[in-house]
Write a protein that binds this DNA or RNA. Structure first.
Length: 725
DNA sequence: GCACATAGTATTTTT
DNA sequence: TACTATGTGC
């Protein structure tokens, strides 16, 4: 006793220690960026176990990503050793899946349900629309899915939805929603939202289940509480209702998932939900330099709806933030690559400490191409995920129909892949025959001789039946990893992948091998686990989960994925109106504020070096022009250093001499009037250059003046004085 | 029923 | 720009 406390005490400041050692009752930790909030959560769990005699069985910690869960587990292991194994640390979704499987007999779902990822769910939804004679082209299934998701997030079922549907589109959704739920049920499948929705339903309907879980999880910790949606809120508050030992950590300034139903109100009203709750503020930042923190605070202070916090840092002042203005996306990428090379050369920065962030995945392309050309090793987090690749999903579909023969989406996926001569006509016949016998198509394959089909299709169907039988035997006789390997071969997926062009098929083949290796590794770590557990884990996997942070490469990812991470050097690219803030959020103040928080999250990822870049023109669809992001004007001038990047020039980092690149600009006599510069006009006062055209006598300068708005000026005559800093 | 070509369309973030 | 869906020709 006391050992752990002695050990951790010197590592914590007063507020952190206060949070860590508050054992009982509701606790709200309002934590700023870089204040060590996940660490506090971890230490608190360890404290409960080591100092308060709480059994690890009685603690539940919920996070949003597997990565966060794993990190917490690893850290705890070093504090309390093997005891972590008995503590439940999971994501919301995997926790829900676990509860639903455990109480499968009470949900009408059984234990062997399949979880549909977004792609599967949309495919099923589209099917429902076709069934109902609703043209999927007139109303995009993805949009319908969004509406259904947001209904489920609010615990609104098909009936309630129908009752309140007002708009034209709501009414269409109301028609599809019940059918979609029915078909999910028929397929013994759940979508992501269902995991939470049905768990809350279960806890509401079965008080005995609720009570037993309340008694089990006497201590509950929730990370990133600002990102919880209504169902997640209900889930944790129901679980905590009895003992009220709930500790939530969050930062309203980092709420960036509002579009997905996250309700910032949850954290704002926590004190009302749990009266007598203790509030601890963690306002000391341990991550960033003063300069970076100052810039971040200034940006986010432009938001109206927030719990105001004053972040402070005892760290060094640090270098100025570099603002790189570039011509287009290619030169932006070039400037990023130049700066990366400089960081590596002059600062001896490891590549693993450098991240390039962007708003949309599409932006990674240009950067990727440039890094490739410059031989700068990189890795991309996100984009097309491994488990979303076609050959992988095809292989998994074979595994899924064996584990859950009712899974109609997986069946449709593989019924004619590889090609067996089973087209739309045959598929319809199979489904009709199955329905008439009250079987799923896979079950039908095991009992039917195919006599309801024409000869060619019959052969194909019998072939498929043969595959199914072999897979069932293989599953019975082989350990999971060998079974997966066998399945890839038996199904014909491997052979199919080998056809087609050589480079493509080589990489597909590698992917299949990687899948086998992944199962193998999973089996080693979970020797008793069945293949179904693996299937569940990978559908609930996220991009960041698979990110190897120790690899000596530069990391590329979206701003969203970067939340919770930190890097010595960060580039935030594409700081343009329409991109950050994104065009889809321009018309609502609320959405703009969320974009601003996204920018804030990006800035606060950086420890020492921050680079902001934007392109004066960017190829998006057809055209071209872009204006610099309004958020740049919210950065305090003295935290910035402006650099106008030119193609193929080299770009100074902070500690190199202050010389601007001059190779390409020497002919430009107005180069001091670069985009982004602050200027003062004798009549109109201070303003900022937002665009310019030309580099000769007729150069036009576009200035946004602080008091009089936007003006276009001829550089030759405009008496602009550059405010230098 | 299949494969290929062409046209049209959709482009934010993701558990 | 890139992918998908549809249509056409076999």
């Amino acid at each position: 006793m006391g050992d752990l406390l002695e050990k951790i005490r010197p590592q914590l400041n007063e507020q952190q220690l206060d949070a860590v050692t508050t054992a009982d009752g509701p606790l709200l930790i309002l934590a700023g960026a870089g204040s060590g909030k996940t660490r506090v959560l971890t230490y608190r769990s360890a404290y409960l176990i080591a100092e308060c005699g709480v059994s690890p069985f009685n603690i539940l910690a919920v996070t949003f990503t597997n990565k966060a869960a794993n990190e917490m587990r690893t850290r705890m292991e070093s504090l309390v050793g093997a005891a972590v194994r008995d503590m439940q640390v999971s994501t919301f979704h995997s926790f829900a899946a676990r509860v639903l499987r455990r109480f499968g007999d009470k949900t009408g779902l059984g234990r062997d349900f399949t979880i549909y990822d977004e792609e599967d769910a949309v495919a099923l939804l589209k099917q429902c629309m076709v069934d109902l004679n609703i043209n999927p082209k007139a109303h995009s299934p993805r949009k319908v899915k969004e509406y259904i998701s947001s209904a489920k997030d609010k615990m609104i079922g098909p009936d309630a939805y129908k009752a309140t549907a007002a708009s034209f589109f709501n009414k269409i959704v109301a028609e599809i929603y019940p059918r979609y739920q029915q078909r999910l049920q028929d397929s013994s499948a759940l979508d992501f939202d269902d995991l939470l929705y049905r768990t809350v339903q279960l806890l509401t309907a079965c008080t005995d289940v609720l009570e037993s879980l309340q008694n089990k999880y006497r201590y509950i910790m929730v990370d990133e509480y600002q990102d919880t949606n209504h169902t997640q809120y209900l889930l944790v508050s129901k679980l905590a209702a009895r003992y009220k030992n709930i500790c939530v950590v969050g930062d309203d300034d980092q709420s960036i998932y509002g579009w997905r139903g996250a309700d910032i109100g949850n954290i704002l009203k926590f004190e009302d939900d749990f009266p007598g709750c203790k509030v601890v503020r963690l306002e000391q930042n341990y991550r960033s330099t003063q300069t970076i923190l100052r810039a971040a605070s200034n940006v986010v202070s432009n938001n109206c709806s927030r719990k105001s916090k004053t972040l402070f840092s005892k760290g060094e002042l640090g270098d100025k933030i570099i603002l790189l203005s570039t011509d287009d996306d290619a030169s932006e990428a070039g400037a990023v690559a130049d700066s990366i090379e400089d960081l590596i050369r002059t600062e001896k920065a490891p590549r693993s400490g450098i991240a390039v962030l962007y708003r949309t995945n599409a932006q990674s392309r240009a950067i990727e191409e440039t890094l490739k050309k410059r031989f700068i090793p990189y890795t991309i987090v996100g984009g097309i995920r491994f488990y979303q690749r076609k050959e992988i999903k095809d292989s998994l579909a074979y595994l899924k129909i064996i584990s859950n023969p009712k899974d109609i989406i997986s069946f449709r996926r593989i019924v004619n892949y590889p090609s067996r001569g089973l087209g739309n006509v045959a598929l319809a016949a199979i489904e009709a025959e199955a329905a008439s016998k009250n079987l799923s198509p896979v079950e039908l394959a095991l009992v039917s001789n195919g006599d309801f089909l024409r000869s060619q299709a019959r052969t194909g169907f019998l072939q498929l039946a043969g595959v199914v039988r072999s897979l069932i035997t293989a599953k019975r006789d082989l350990p999971p990893d060998r079974y997966v390997e066998a399945a890839i071969n038996i199904s014909g997926v491997r052979a199919e992948v080998m056809t087609g062009d050589a480079i493509e098929s080589e990489s597909r083949k590698e992917n299949l091998d990687e899948l086998i290796a992944a199962v193998k590794e999973y089996c080693q770590q979970n020797p008793t686990a069945a293949i179904e557990a693996f299937l569940e884990e990978i559908t609930l996997y996220t991009d960041v989960d698979s990110w190897d942070e120790s690899a000596d490469v530069v990391t590329l990812m979206t701003l969203h994925s970067a939340k919770g991470l930190e890097f010595p050097a960060v580039f935030i690219t594409g700081l343009e109106e329409g991109l950050l803030p994104h065009s889809r959020s321009l018309d609502k103040d609320r959405d703009i504020e969320e974009e601003r928080r996204l920018f804030y999250v990006g800035i606060t990822r950086a420890r020492n070096h921050l680079f902001l870049t934007y392109a004066r023109s960017r190829r998006r669809f057809a055209s071209a022009v872009s204006n610099e992001s309004r958020f740049l004007a919210e950065l305090p001038a003295e935290t910035l250093r402006f650099v106008s990047a030119q193609k193929h020039a080299s770009y100074p980092t902070q500690n190199m001499s202050a010389s601007l690149p001059n190779t390409a600009v020497s002919a430009d006599r107005y180069r001091h009037l670069a985009v982004g510069r602050w200027v003062v006009h004798p009549t109109w006062g201070p303003g900022r250059i937002i665009a310019r055209q030309g580099a000769d006598e007729s150069t036009m300068i576009d200035v946004m003046f602080q008091y009089v708005g936007r003006k276009k000026l001829l550089a030759k005559y405009a008496d602009l004085e550059v405010k230098d800093y």
